[in-house]
Structures are given as C-alpha cells and as structure tokens.
Design a binder for these strands. Sequence first.
DNA 1: CTCATAAACGGACTTCACCCCGTTTATATT
DNA 2: AATATAAACGGGGTGAAGTCCGTTTATGAG
Lengths: 205, 205
Amino acid sequence: MPLGRPRAERADAKRNRLRLLAVAREMVAEHGTANVTMDALAERAGLGKGTVFRRFGTRAGIFKALLEDEASRFQELVLAGPPPLGPGAGPAERLIAYGRVRIEFLIDNLAVAQAAMERDRGLPVAEVDMTHTHFRMLLARADLGIADLDSLALQLSAALEGPLLLFLSSPQDAEPPAAEIERRLADAWQALIERLFRMDAPPES
Amino acid sequence: MPLGRPRAERADAKRNRLRLLAVAREMVAEHGTANVTMDALAERAGLGKGTVFRRFGTRAGIFKALLEDEASRFQELVLAGPPPLGPGAGPAERLIAYGRVRIEFLIDNLAVAQAAMERDRGLPVAEVDMTHTHFRMLLARADLGIADLDSLALQLSAALEGPLLLFLSSPQDAEPPAAEIERRLADAWQALIERLFRMDAPPES
DNA sequence: CTCATAAACGGACTTCACCCCGTTTATATT
DNA sequence: AATATAAACGGGGTGAAGTCCGTTTATGAG
C-alpha cells in the first residue's frame, strides 16, 4: 500500500488554521484562557464550530498549537544558538541555562500551558516532549554513573516543569509575585543540577 | 466572632457520602473512570445529582476522596510504621522507600489519580501535598548544601509523581506493561536520590 | 474548461459538569 | 413532644465540549 504523502494541507484549511490561531491569541490576550470557548472562537473567526474541532481536535489542542508556535523560535536557540543555551557549553551548563529560559517561558505562558493539558488522557507530551528529548541528549553526553538515562531525563523534565504545570494554582494568584516564583524555581533548578553533576563543594567528610 | 466549631457532619450527610464513595468505587472497578458520570453515580446511589455535588464539589473531588481514602493507611505507615519507610532510617533511605511505595500506589490507582486532577486550576494539591510535606521534613533532616529546601521538595515531588501524572498516557496503554514501568521508575528514583545524597561511588577524578 | 473526488465546512445534536433554589429533614432546644 | 433552623436534598436548567452528517469547495486529471 503506497499510501502517498499526506497530500499537503489545502489552502482554505491553512488559512482557517492560521486565522483561528490569531483569533485565539487575541482572545487570550483580552480575557484570558477561560473565555476562549469553542463556540466563541468559531463565531469570532467567522467559521463553524465543526471547523475548529477539525483543525485542533480538542480545546486543549488550540492551546498546544499556540504554545508550540511560541516555542519554535526558542527551540532554535537551544539547537543552534550561542552557549550556554546552545551547543558549545557543557551538559550541566546547558541544563541550567535551559531550565532558566524554560521556567521563564512557562511562567509567561502559564495560563496557556495549563489550558493545554488534556483532561483525562494524561499526556501533554507535546508540552514536554521538547524538554525530554533535549535532556536525554545532554545526559548522554555527560558521564553520570546512572544507567537509565531515559527515566532520568523524564524525572528531570518533571522536576523542571511539574512545579508549574501541576502545583501552581491560578496564574495571577498574587500570593507570591510571578517574578519571585521564577527566581526561586530557577535557583533551585540550578542547585539541583549542580549537585547532580557534583559541581558544588564535595562532601566535607 | 466566635465562629463555633463546624458542627459535625449530619448523619444523613455522612451516610450518603459513604454510599457515594462505595458506589463510585464499584463503578470504577466495573467500567473504569470514564463512565462515572455525576448523573449515573447519583442515580445508581439512589440520590439526587445536587447531593453528589454538595458532597464532593466537583467530579475530580470524588476521585480525590477515593484516593485519600486509599492513601490514609499508607500515610500511617510513613508516619509511624517500621523503617525504612517509617521513622528510624536515614533520610535518603526513607526517600527511596517512600518513592517505591508511592510509585506502586500511583500505578495501581493511575486512572483514579489522573481523574482526580482538576481541569484548569493547576493544583491537585491534595494529590501531592502528602508527598511534598514529607519530603520537606526529610530534607530538613539531611544536611545537603542546598538552601531552598522547600523548592527542592517541590522538585523532587514532581520528579517522583510527574512521570505518572503528567506524561504517562492512558492507563492500560499496554506498550510497556505496568510492572515494567513501575520497576524502571522505582530504580531511577533510587538512583536519583543516591546521587543527590552522594551514596554512590564518588567521582573518579 | 470540466469533472470527479477527497477534503473541508457548518451547525444542529448529544452529553456532561456544574448551578440554583424551592422543598424536606436532622437535630438541638424548650 | 413541639418547634425552630441550619443543613441537606432533588432535579430541572444552563453553558460548553465534542460528534455527526449532509452540503460545499479546492484541486488534480483529462
């Protein structure tokens, strides 16, 4: 069965997809994610609701797309930008730099990131996939004495993103200001990586 | 304003709460979490839908209650049981033991745990609170050279539970059997803690 | 240019979580 | 036992996600 290639997105489909993303961005900017309903989005874009679902599959799908769009340029920096984020620095330095930037990104887009999580189906894979893949690569370069690098990468991904995706409540909870949260998480991340890589002072014994 | 104490749960309320939990457990056992709708649960329990919401607030609330119920005896073991899970062992040993048991518990109750996550509001706090609190206590006992123990506890909680709550897709994905996942995660968790606590071989340099 | 067809479209329809509020009941007090 | 009242109950109502399917349209082939 030759299958043929997926036959390129039809012109109207592409136009509508971009349109919907733009309108969604507007709506998020105006009233936050809460009021982005499928009906409202469809109407404001001048399209049918069926079209919205056809394009994005699910409500979370819209926010995933929004996020990936934002994240793509960041991904380039990671893959080909200047150190310490890009190639050239050691694995630990790159992990630390990645963590800082990723935390900043997630905090800036927290509402969208949380809205991008699927309800029952547990996998916001796309959400995290970039991080996991990158970590696996960096850990392979470092020579830790740990066998299952895949699981370690998964755990570190969770350690980095979990506090924001899982535990932080509503976006503008105001309790601790976002900047404060960002600083604490970034510092803690750095401390964790430094200790894992034994970059801090050795034990006093 | 004296407030008075909350005035004890009324008898009928308690009866209905327990009834609903029992029925919910049955339904989960029979058809998984997906078919536990508020209407179905209410009808099968012979109660009104309003009552279900009054008792549990939200659909996720039901699963949270189910989970806490299961977890309470486990919590006793952690607080007062025999080492290495309970008091008596060192912090690292207790962290490792806790991780093993917690992973097993989460895998056994994965569908419920995932259904217990709130949709938008990012905090399944109850879900994780026990872990976070316990970790903070253990880390305070250990003398790592890390300042922000609160954040570290948060990260470790995420590293332990995130892989299951965030990344693992559908419960019986069958790809890797549950037992295999459990083993890998538990081993990886142990390796992570050992390295953090420098219990493995020191660096060769 | 015409036609065939796969793809996209739209919007009514279904299902479900969650809200509301008039009615009923447990319990404490006399 | 009678009563007051806070709490609990029930189930109809609402809004939004996701489905279905008959209709329309882009596009490649002849």
